[in-house]
Amino acid sequence: MTEFETERTMPAGADAVFAVVSDLERLTEWLPHEIRVRPTHDDPGSDPARGGGDVTEVHAEVEPRHVDAHGLVRVRPEQMRVEWGGGDSTDYAGYLQVMGDDPDRSSVLLHLSFLGDQPETHTGQASDEVRRGLDTGLENLARMLAERAI
């Protein structure tokens, strides 16, 4: 298992940040351009109170591989948290946690776990790309919030 984590201060309060990151239709506005996530539908048997969520399609061109997958995303407003994982696979999961009480500033923690023997679990290009992607995503989010494009 390999875990990646990064945290960044955001130029907006936690409620404003969570409104952006929990809107699955807006993910492409701040995710790295190599990663495209598209909500497809609600999980048919999902009950959000019991961990249900939205089914998504993920397309990623992150060297050295190409990913086309379905996943499950759970938005947990009571925790200011968005969680996701592979729909058909248990070898990948992540979460984004928004924290803060200041109305003009908050913090976002972005965490990814690779649980199998994927290229990202080894040192080298794939793990370097994951680290860059985490940093780029949070930089894009901070820039978007600073420009008040929310």
Rank of each mutant, 00 (worst) to 15 (best):
M1P: 09
E5R: 04
M10P: 14
A14P: 07
A14Q: 05
D15C: 00
A19R: 01
V20F: 02
V21H: 02
S22E: 00
L24N: 08
R26H: 00
R26M: 03
R26T: 06
R26L: 11
H33K: 08
I35Q: 06
I35M: 11
V37A: 06
V37T: 10
R38Q: 15
P39H: 02
P39A: 07
P39S: 04
T40I: 15
D43N: 02
D47E: 07
P48G: 04
P48T: 01
P48F: 03
G53I: 03
D54V: 12
V55C: 08
H59Q: 04
V67Q: 14
V67Y: 14
H70V: 05
L72I: 10
V73C: 05
R74L: 05
R76L: 15
R76F: 08
P77W: 01
E78N: 11
Q79K: 09
M80R: 13
R81I: 12
R81N: 08
R81V: 10
V82A: 11
W84A: 11
W84S: 03
D88C: 03
D88W: 05
Y92K: 03
Y95G: 10
V98L: 13
M99W: 00
G100V: 09
D102Y: 00
D102P: 10
S106F: 10
S106V: 14
S107N: 11
L109M: 14
L109F: 02
F114H: 10
P119D: 13
E120G: 12
E120Q: 13
T121M: 06
H122K: 05
H122A: 14
H122V: 07
H122F: 03
Q125I: 07
A126E: 04
S127D: 06
S127C: 09
E129L: 07
R131P: 06
R132N: 15
R132T: 14
R132K: 14
G133C: 08
G133Q: 09
T136E: 15
G137C: 06
L141P: 05
L141T: 08
L145F: 07
A146I: 06
R148W: 00
